[in-house]
């Protein structure tokens, strides 16, 4: 059984069928790029994996553990726990403006660690000293993560004091902090000025080198080709074609993919 198994995921908004049955598998440590024209359902698919949308049909299994089944109704608490299998980096970063880069990472990490400790020890309200210790540990972890994305010196700055590329790197560090099994990126460079995309793509390449399992929706064809082990082409709410980068980019079979690649490489 594959590490991630997505079976027949369907999602409609009212009458509009946006995902018409997505079947998808990937292995641990694999990097998958998803490409396709706008409106094809790529974002919706990532949002389903992260429980931001509830699919109308299908199942999601991670590491043999069925974390979603459309036939089952989940409580908020269950959803919260299951979604932590995945991380999501948004196109528009969505950093919290009132927190520094460090606190953007440390705050959510602290909350989850505190919750885990509460559950372990059965103590509902942790003592002050223990909370403080957890906070300091989370800040130290945040500083390490910031160092890994090349932002050690920016830890104390607020999002409005950072460039778009720096914000996105903080957002990546924030998602990594919770150690998701699979990290998803939704067009991580689309909101950036062209000269800032390089620094973000470099960080993603580093993550690949470190063995992270990632799903990357991107419009950067060169990047997709070089970073991905496997490329998925989505169109009209289905996976139209998939394969190795060489298969997809050099030997496209479907008419839709050929047309898409033609359009993408025109510029």
């Amino acid at each position: 059984m594959a590490f991630l198994e997505v079976k027949n995921i369907q999602k409609s908004f009212g009458e509009t069928k946006v995902l018409r049955g997505i079947d998808f598998t990937m292995e641990r440590g694999e990097v998958v790029a998803i490409i396709g024209s706008s409106g094809g359902g790529k974002t919706t698919f990532l949002r389903c994996l992260n429980f931001l949308e509830t699919p109308n049909g299908g199942t999601i299994t991670v590491d043999g553990d069925e974390i979603f089944n459309a036939a089952v109704t989940y409580t908020d608490a269950e959803t919260r726990e299951k979604r932590l299998r995945f991380g999501l980096v948004f196109q528009s970063f969505n950093l919290f403006p009132q927190y520094t880069a460090r606190e953007n990472i440390a705050m959510p990490l602290y909350l989850r660690r505190a919750e885990a400790l509460s559950r372990e020890t059965g103590v509902r309200r942790l003592p002050r000293a223990q909370k403080h210790e957890l906070q300091e540990a989370a800040r130290a972890a945040a500083d390490d993560l910031l160092k890994n994305v090349g932002l050690a010196e920016k830890a104390g700055l607020y999002p409005h004091q950072l460039s778009g590329g720096q914000c996105q790197r903080v957002a990546i560090a924030r998602a990594l902090a919770l150690s998701p099994d699979i990290l998803c990126f939704d067009e991580p460079t689309s909101a950036l000025d062209p000269e800032l995309t390089g620094e973000v793509l470099r960080v993603i390449r580093d993550l690949r080198r470190d063995g992270h399992t990632m799903i990357i929706v991107t419009h950067e064809m060169e990047f997709a080709r070089s970073v991905a082990d496997h490329v998925v082409f989505m169109a009209g709410g289905i996976i139209e074609e998939e394969g190795t980068p060489a298969e997809i980019f050099d030997h496209p079979t479907s008419e839709a993919l050929r047309a898409f690649l033609h359009k993408e490489t025109e510029f």
Partner: peptide
Amino acid sequence: FGQTEAGRVLGMTKGEIFFRVTLLQ
């Protein structure tokens, strides 16, 4: 709404999102 969604994907509860993300803004 992206603020709330960012909180959600980081595993935060509704209360945590309200008090730690939304309220001060």
